[in-house]
Amino acid sequence: MHRIFGDILLREQTFEQISVVVQGPVQNYQGRTHHEEGITQRCLESIRTHLPGAKIILSTWPDQDLSGLVYDQLVISQDPGTNSVAELPQFPKNYNRQLVSTQAGLAQVTTPYAIKLRSDNFIIGNEFVGIQQNYPKSESEQKVFTEKVVINSNLFRRTSHGRTVLMSPSDFFYFGTTEDLKKIWQQPLIEDQPIAEEMSKAMNSASTTSCTLEAEQFYCQIWLKALNPSTKVMQHRFDYTKKDIIAWERFLASNIIIADPETMGLGLRKISKRKLKRANEFSHIDWLKLYKKYCDCSITIAKDYQQWSLEIRRAFKLPLSNLSSRFKHK
């Protein structure tokens, strides 16, 4: 059924079965000054251009200037502000904001498929629709979603300071079934989070020389723990074993598709762009190698100059970064 749906979308270029939740502020405010002028208008217009027929749900905060913005449905939520839980000072300060605006938008979705898109990004194509349907195989014991969820590779960390990191996906773009996106984003606020105390204790017990968790690792651990209560709670950025690395790779291969922005149809804000891909990020080919290893050994991975260049840079840069980090955190 879903394979047929994907074929129809690509052939007829009709996207009525997709809703796009554009979440976040539409302008700068105190403490947040990197929102590009007009970026949300560009975001909304890009959806009309590249996803004709898709429903646009703008989920934002009160007192935002909405002039010139075109959408199908507006959702206004009370801004929870930065996290102010005194006993959890190490938690990412905008965790509640990310949850509230995303949840409020997804709650209004009635279509089978949805996109979670930050209000400071935009789309430049619709290739992610086909990509989402192209890799259907999974390890049955690893599968937690009804279909794979497409996440962009930009800021989807593979390494940090030259060392492997786990559970650090980007928060820019998610595309999949509405049911699956809700599994990721329908989590309690930080003060109501059932594993908050466990995470706080784990993080506080980490050595002072350890690298703290990335914000994305914090988010990801919460929804992974909700999906699988046996998920390990990490003390710090590199708190894992070889067994944990394999478990994360198998999860990615069976549940996620990591796609490169320029080939999936995602446009990036200026501060996220780089002339060369960051050496610490996943690429689509990195993910394809995991998919081939764990799910479908029959696929062919084409040779790619950009991937070759990326791996050459990694071979030189990552060991130096690792060495520098170990000296710094002695």
Rank of each mutant, 00 (worst) to 15 (best):
I4D: 10
L9N: 15
L9I: 15
L10A: 05
L10H: 09
Q13R: 14
E16N: 13
S19C: 15
N28A: 05
G31V: 13
E37W: 10
T40F: 04
I47F: 08
L51P: 11
P52K: 10
G53L: 11
L58P: 03
D65H: 06
Y71I: 14
D72F: 14
L74N: 06
V75S: 00
I76T: 11
Q78W: 00
D79W: 01
D79F: 02
G81P: 09
E87K: 10
P89N: 09
P89L: 01
R97D: 11
Q98G: 01
S101L: 03
A104K: 13
T111I: 05
I115T: 08
L117F: 09
R118Q: 11
S119Q: 12
I131T: 11
Q132R: 09
Q132W: 01
P136H: 09
K137C: 09
E139L: 15
K143H: 13
T146M: 04
V149Y: 01
V150I: 08
N154K: 14
R163A: 13
P169Q: 07
F173Q: 05
G176C: 07
T177L: 04
T177W: 00
E179F: 06
I184N: 00
E191V: 05
E198S: 13
M199P: 03
K201I: 02
N204E: 12
T208V: 03
T212Q: 08
L213M: 11
A215E: 05
E216Q: 01
F218K: 00
F218T: 00
Y219V: 00
Y219Q: 00
I222E: 04
K225W: 01
V233Q: 08
M234S: 01
H236V: 07
W248G: 07
E249H: 03
R250K: 13
S254R: 00
N255K: 02
I256C: 03
I257A: 06
M264C: 10
G267L: 08
K270F: 13
R278N: 14
A279G: 07
W287H: 12
K292S: 01
K293I: 11
K293E: 09
Y294G: 10
S298M: 03
T300I: 14
I301K: 07
Y305T: 12
Q306G: 09
Q306N: 12
S324W: 02
S325D: 12
R326W: 04
F327P: 13
